[in-house]
Structure formats: structure tokens, C-alpha cells
């Protein structure tokens, strides 16, 4: 039996405006298993990012509850690398540790290990403007991994990159996450990206978001995201989820 690290029960999110209440998320329930790569897909503005904000306590929920261990540490990786241009790569990588005041020697050594492992150590004294988009994204991931999260929330982390970098960086980030054995919830509106990376995909409806379907992604030869795109079952999943999304052009 899989070990569950998070359970979301009947989560509802409403926003209050002067024009009335807006129902963004309408009753969502799901579990997150330890070590899995869970991807949430849905059309733009359906409430995917709101869900991640709620999970990381940046926003409050209206109804329902989230069951998790108090000691569960959550790391959040955003749509852009959000590196601070006035800090060096090293200073950016330890930013979370500094803010949380946990910049112990042990944690700093871990950041240095990650920088070395992912070929960024030689650039540690350089500034973000000297790095490529992909390298910056790797630094952003290391900044998130530095606080040793049990659960990683990825909010469309590749959306600011061009198509080719996107493929390469998603491959890169996937390998790092698997190597560091992290549990992930990623949201994206890119179906191919979702299928190529996910163990499980949750398809959300348009606003107000509800769960339309959940897919266990069982490819014939699961490998890295780029290779997974060539898998025989890839297009089958693509067609099924595309129909679920009910895209009107």
C-alpha cells in the first residue's frame, strides 16, 4: 500500500468581490502518495495555481480540509525563476535558508553539493544575467530543494521558457527531482509536458474547478520526459485528456 503524505477533503475556494462571490474551486478531493509525480491539468484560469497557493498556505481555503503531517515541509517553485538580479547564484540558492534562518553549515553544504552535482558550482559567484534560462531554472530548483522539502509544488515552472529550452529543462528538472526522491504536485496547461512527466494526472474542469478525471499514466517504457514523448501510449493519453479538457477554439 502506498504511503499518503497529503489528503485533500472537499476543498472549496470562494473569492469575495463587490460584485458578489466567485466560486473558484468547487469541492475537490484527492490524495498525494509519497514519491509520486502528480500533475494537475486544466485550462487557463481554472484554479490550478490557486490550489497550489492554498496547499502552501499562501491563501486560505473556504471549506473542506487538508490533512497533512505538521512536520511536512513544502517547497514552492514558481512560474518564473524569480532569481534576484543583485545576488550571486550562490546567494540566490541559499536565499530560502537565509529567510527561514536555517542557514546552518549542514544546509549550506547541501546547497554546495547540489550546485556541484548540477554543474552550477563554477558559476556560483556569477549573477543571474550571466546564465541561460535553463541554468536559472536549475538554480531556482536548488533554492527550493535547499530547504529540504518533503513535497514540491511546481507552478507551471517552464512556462517562461521557449519551446526547445522547455523540453531540455523539464528533462533536467525531472531527473533532479527523481534523483532527490521528492514528491511533486505540478500544475500545467501543457498536456504533452504533463503526460511526459506524470505518474498520475488529475484533470480539472473549467471554473469552478472540479475533478473531471484521474489518470494513472502507464507508459510502455517509462524513462525521461523527452523519451516518454516517443512512447506508444503517449498519443492515446493525449487524445483522451484533450477530450476531457473540452477546449473550445
Amino acid at each position: 500500500m502506498k504511503n499518503k503524505i497529503l489528503r485533500i477533503n472537499n476543498l472549496v475556494k470562494n473569492y469575495n468581490t463587490m460584485r458578489g462571490e466567485i466560486n473558484a474551486i468547487k469541492e475537490i478531493s484527492f490524495d498525494v502518495n509519497e514519491g509520486e509525480f502528480l500533475v494537475i491539468v486544466g485550462s487557463s484560469g481554472c484554479g490550478k495555481s490557486t490550489l497550489l497557493s492554498i496547499l502552501s498556505d499562501l491563501e486560505t481555503l473556504t471549506e473542506g480540509n487538508i490533512l497533512k503531517n505538521d512536520s511536512l515541509k513544502i517547497g514552492y517553485m514558481l512560474q518564473e525563476d524569480a532569481l534576484l538580479p543583485w545576488l550571486t547564484i550562490y546567494e540566490n540558492a541559499i536565499l530560502g535558508l537565509k529567510i527561514k534562518k536555517i542557514d546552518t553549515q549542514e544546509n549550506i553544504d547541501e546547497v554546495i553539493r547540489l550546485l556541484k552535482l548540477y554543474n552550477l558550482y563554477d558559476f556560483k559567484d556569477k549573477y543571474p544575467k550571466n546564465l541561460s534560462g535553463g541554468m536559472k531554472q536549475r538554480v531556482a530548483l536548488i533554492r527550493t530543494l535547499a530547504i529540504k522539502p518533503d513535497l514540491l509544488l511546481l507552478d507551471e515552472p517552464f512556462s517562461a521558457l521557449d519551446y526547445q529550452s522547455r523540453l531540455a529543462v523539464s528533462d533536467d528538472v525531472y531527473k533532479i527531482i527523481k534523483k532527490e526522491k521528492k514528491t511533486v504536485i505540478m500544475v500545467t496547461h501543457d498536456l504533452a509536458e504533463a503526460i511526459s512527466m506524470a505518474d498520475r494526472i488529475i484533470v480539472l474542469s473549467k471554473r469552478p474547478a472540479t475533478i473531471k478525471k484521474i489518470y494513472d499514466i502507464k507508459l510502455e517504457h517509462k524513462g525521461t520526459p523527452i523519451n516518454n514523448r516517443k512512447d506508444g501510449k503517449f498519443s492515446k493519453y493525449y487524445d483522451m485528456i484533450w477530450r476531457d479538457l473540452d477546449v473550445n477554439i
Binding site: S56, L58, L78, E80, L84, G96, I99
Partner: peptide
């Protein structure tokens, strides 16, 4: 996005002002 990043690290208002 940068403000959200700081909030995700639970930055205090003082940290938000002085570091960002």
C-alpha cells in the same frame, strides 16, 4: 512572482522590505 517567492519562504515584513 518574487513577492510570492518570499511569502512561500514565510518572510517577515522586515525581510520582505530589506531583502527584496
Amino acid at each position: 512572482v518574487k513577492i510570492k517567492l518570499f511569502k512561500s519562504f514565510r518572510a517577515s515584513k522586515w525581510q520582505l522590505m530589506t531583502k527584496l
